[in-house]
Design a protein around this nucleic acid. Structure first.
Lengths: 146, 146
DNA sequence: AAGAGTTACCCCACAATTCCCCACTTATTA
DNA sequence: TAATAAGTGGGGAATTGTGGGGTAACTCTT
């Protein structure tokens, strides 16, 4: 499981260090490949197999249905397979960097089955946002029996 | 599979570089021909065989049904076969360039079986649009566990 | 039918990016 | 406080992308 936050710097070449404990998770699962994908305001990193399952399902859906196209465009199209270099970094493709507004300080956020990559300011803004709607969340959680 | 985004410049002659990883997909399938077609706000590029499958199906449909005619006009009629030059570029025919509003920065977007070619501003507008109608997509997301 | 202008296609040269190293600094652990 | 691990920075080769010249084909005009 991916848990905890890390702050790392995105270097001038667009590389981002992956925290050792995240890399350990990958190694323990026997496949160090990572897939970077886009989400709304951040990037999401999946272990390769985890992502494969999703991508395979989607690939079998319609090639013309507008809803499927929208979904594919939004969540699938950006997926980029990558490997850590010897120093444990991945190169974030320029368009993904741009989408997620990454520069300078980056937050890596464990989300159990995957982890997210946030620009620092956006990450704090996101938490603000969530906390503004906290009431709704709590009742939602309560419904789930948590 | 075509995945990931690339940003390339459309040069003064209307040529567009195809990312190396997309060209690899074509080469691996043993047929480097590409078919460019029109879609709603962007262009779509198919490997030749993939396109053939679509075009063959449509060719067997009615020659008079207005819906089929409309579909044919919209998605089929603009199809243009083309090959990459030695530098890995294709020439985008001027009418298609115009239709998709391409100039300057162009996004190439992997859509699994094919890839789309977007004007940068339109691409971001499209994402906005999708995210505004997120409700439509929730069924997929639930299905896929995203 | 000939000539001017445009467009497409081939080529080469340069620029930018990516990839693969190695070295240094900062944390962590013993 | 040494020893090991983690994270950062940067050099240099290889790959990828960009710009542009020159010739051939094609269109349009006269």
């Amino acid at each position: 499981m991916f848990t905890g936050w890390s702050i790392h710097a995105l270097d001038a070449k667009g590389r981002l260090a992956i925290p050792a404990r995240f890399r350990d998770v990958l190694r323990d699962e026997g496949d160090e490949r990572l897939v970077l994908t886009t989400s709304e305001r951040c990037l999401v990193a999946y272990p390769y197999n985890e992502w494969r399952a999703v991508a395979d399902k989607v690939s079998r859906l319609s090639r013309v249905d507008p809803k499927v196209l929208a979904f594919r465009r939004y969540f699938i199209s950006g997926a980029t397979e990558s490997l850590c270099d010897k120093q444990g970094r991945v190169l974030i493709p320029q368009p993904l960097r741009e989408l997620a507004g990454l520069d300078g300080q980056v937050y890596l956020v464990g989300m159990q089955h995957n982890f997210e990559i946030w620009d620092k300011d956006r990450w704090y803004a996101e938490r603000e946002q969530i906390s503004a709607n906290f009431g709704d969340l709590s009742s939602f959680m309560a419904d789930l029996g948590i």
